[in-house]
Nucleic acid binder design. Sequence first.
DNA 1: GCAAGGTC
Length: 827
Amino acid sequence: MELIITEKDNAARRIADILSGGTYDSSRENGVNVYEWGGKRCVGLSGHVVGVDFPPEYSDWRDVEPVELIDADVEKTATKENIVATLRILARKANTVTIATDYDREGELIGKEAYEIVREVNETVPIRRVRFSSITENEVTDAFENPDDIDFDLAAAGEARQIIDLIWGAALTRFLSLSAGQLGDDFISVGRVQSPTLKLIVDRKREIQAFDPEEYWELFADLQKDDTSFEAQYFYRDEDDNEAERVWEEATAEEVHDTLSSRDAATVVDVNRRTRTDAPPAPFNTTQFIRAAGALGYSAQRAMSIAEDLYTAGYITYPRTDNTVYPDDLEPEELLDEFVGHSTLGDSAEQLLEADALEPTRGDEETTDHPPIHPTGEIPSRGGDVNDDEWEIYELVVRRFYATVAEAAVWEHLKVVAEVDDCRLKANGKRLVEPGYHDVYPYFSTAENYVPDVDEGERLGLTDVELEAKETQPPRRYGQSRLIETMEDQGLGTKSTRHNTLEKLYDRGYIESDPPRPTKLAMAVIDAAENYADRVVSEEMTAQLEADMDAIASGEATLADVTDESREMLEEIFANLADSREEIGDHLRKSLKDDKRLGPCPECGEDLLVRSSRHGSYFVGCDGYPDCEFTLPLPSTGKPLILDQECEDHDLNEVKMLAGRQTFVHGCPLCKSEDAGEGPVLGDCPDCGDDHDGDLAVKTLQSGSRLVGCTRYPDCDYSLPLPRRGEIEVTDERCEEHGLPELVVHSGDDPWELGCPICNYQEFQARESETGSDLEALDGVGAKTVEKLSDAGIESIDDLTDADPEAVAEDVDGVSADRIRTWQAEA
DNA sequence: GCAAGGTC
């Protein structure tokens, strides 16, 4: 039996399909798919199935000095046991093994990992390696006809990277975490890729902070030919004889302004026409795909996640690739044919097929890993197979493919220079004369700027002279896609990991918001690393590692040479670090607190800090706790972000709640708390009244919703719901069972006797479980209305939101269409 | 529980 091993299940299935001519059978072994035909079996791994780590005796951070990790053993252990087990079973029965993992360095290492697992159980079976860069019939059959051997040197290069990354990452991460006393989930991480990436963001922040804006002036005027007017801008020649628009002295700007304003005509002194070819874009690699999706509003992570889904479902090719050159056997005409007749993608395909010959564009990167991202020709149905976001991304990939086989666009540029005394004005016009690829790829701007045809010597009207005072702007923050592009330029991370690295920086509390801003903690970590372990925050470490890996791959160096040298460098770093442990720790701890600080506590003057409760919700508490027990509530949705904006009344920073699309600015927590106010105390809190004297009170939240809650919130989060609208009256009558006053809600004509809030809630829960209806959560909907709505076929809030208000109003007595609309809005 | 790299 021949055993074929691929890097992933998807590739295994497609290779089985090609080699068997579609006749394979599939079965499952330990939850792993195995494809079988004519004496062959094909199984997919899931990337690395073994990982490197230190022996277990190094696992307690407090028992082991971080420096000891440098010379600790590094072991390989199975991380995907079911796959490894399946591989062993299949390998025992094999008389030939073919490694068909991806055609790149990491694929060679994954192949070697499979090789070792096979060898453990089968010492003699021949093991060969096949390489192909796209899973097409030609390439795959060709590769299997010309098998090769595993390149152990190339795999060793990958192993050197694993070892160096683990040792540096773990030793420095533990050192910083221990020095700051951050040992739980909030450890302080450092790594060869994440730290230089974070430094990019931190450096940009430093530039912005250090930026000193400079004033300058620009002048604009309208020129007129017949009835049409167009904007022109003043320019001059600077000392290098370059055109310059910015005037750096106010007096000069005023002078020009006076000159221009004193005249009502200008003379054309130069007309320059030229056509520019606007070449269609190169095929998508991962980075350029992320950038294009970013322009549509998708985060890097989200774009990749959608692309992975589209790939798994068979609509697009593998989304993790560096390649920007299509393989030879991609036939653009055949692929376009698949789209002919499609309701929204068909017209463009038909238009492209009218060309005599299609010559796809080529990018700069031609690699062996995978083809550029393109559609497979299998088309999903919008709203059926894929949702709107997935469709938008799918269409982007399809249209990018279209663009790569489309004609260039042609622009006509027209530059007009007019003169008034010794002042010159210029107008730049541009017109898209041949739309070319823009017709099939509408994601780039094709905005035109109209400037009429004029002749040299012609007199033009001059009006509306404007002098604008401006100032130079600090550099812009990096957006996610710019960051990923820069990482790629600097060789940081890989096509598969760059977006995850950004996500990791968010998770570790190093960056917030989008575009990302660094936290104080991030600034302190980069500071510490720059001072003591500069190498780990420099892209130089990766560049050197790449060179070392090339040396290993070509046989010029060994794995031991490279890892030994790296260990020595880290030893030196630790020699310098030892004395500064406390100083580093103090700085990190201070920065951690700075990230949470809002301002002074109104009761004791210590710092108010954003804290999280045991339940994962957030509140504001005093750093003087337990001496000062002052707290303020925060909204229950989202993660708080402290803004630079301060409240004038309380000197507290305002807070924004990050919750995806529901993100909102909460404001100053003290103002909000005063606004919300706590109503009268009703009685003891059933959860904590006995032990901590908690009381129940009527509360109004920031969102406007109300509840009966414990005054010790957030330490105690006992709460009972109250209706959204109507005035709540607290009566003198008390519930015998719970000792709480009966409540009455006044809204509309009939007062609603809610009764004891605990009883009311229990009844509500009972009704809900009985009727299974969530409709009672709506304002003014009681059991009767639920019954009436149910008779009309409305069983739940979902039904109600989908229903036509007019139709429901006709079916249900005493309920107006307006009222239904109100409920729909509330839902 | 540390990294970065595969993949889901």
